Computed example of a mutant assay.
Amino acid sequence: MNDQLPQDDDRAITERGTTPDTTIPIVVYVLHLAGMVTGGLTSLVGVVIAYVYRGNGPAWLDEHYRYQIRTFWIALLYFGISGLLTLVLIGFITWLAAVVWLVIRCVKGLKTLNEHRAPENVDTWWV
C-alpha cells in the first residue's frame, strides 16, 4: 500500500484530516473589498498575492486564486468604463452597479472558501 499522497487528490488530503490554510485567499478577498475605499490600491496588492500563490495548493484553492485574478481584471474594466461614463453622468449608476458586483463576487468567494470548495462559475463576467 502506498502511503504517499498524490498532490492532486483533494479527497486524500481531507481524509487524513489536514486542510490547506485559507488565510491568504481570505486576505485577498478583503483586499479586493478594501480596494473600493483605497481607489484600487489594495486590490492591486491582492492580485499580486493571488498570482504568487496560484498553483501552490489543491485544485479547489487554485480556483479561488483564479477567481480573484479574474475579479481584479474584470473590476478594472467595469470601474474604468464607469469612470469614462461619468462624463455623461450615467457613470455614477454603472459605478454603483460595479460596487455591488464586486461585493457580491467577494462574498460569494468567501462563502465557498469557508466551505472548502471552489467558487462556482469562475469564468463568468457576472456574479
Rank of each mutant, 00 (worst) to 15 (best):
W101F: 07
V122N: 02
N121L: 12
T71N: 00
G40F: 12
R105F: 10
D123S: 02
L44D: 02
I13P: 02
A97G: 12
V107W: 07
T23W: 06
W126D: 08
L102S: 10
E120K: 00
V37R: 11
A34I: 12
T22P: 09
R105A: 04
T124E: 01
V37W: 08
D10N: 07
P25Q: 11
A98Y: 14
N2L: 14
A50I: 15
Y67T: 14
A75G: 10
W73C: 03
I90D: 00
D62Q: 02
P58M: 15
V45D: 06
V47D: 02
T42N: 06
P25E: 03
V52L: 15
G57H: 09
G83S: 02
F79V: 13
R105T: 10
L87F: 12
T94C: 09
P58N: 15
P20I: 07
K108D: 01
V28L: 08
T71D: 00
E115G: 04
V47W: 10
R117S: 14
A75K: 04
L85I: 00
W126K: 14
L84A: 08
E15T: 06
I13G: 04
Y78S: 07
L33H: 11
E120R: 00
T18N: 09
T71M: 03
E115S: 06
V122R: 01
N2V: 14
I13Y: 08
V99M: 06
A59D: 13
G91Q: 04
W60Q: 11
G40T: 07
E15D: 11
G46F: 08
W60P: 10
L33T: 09
V99I: 11
T86A: 06
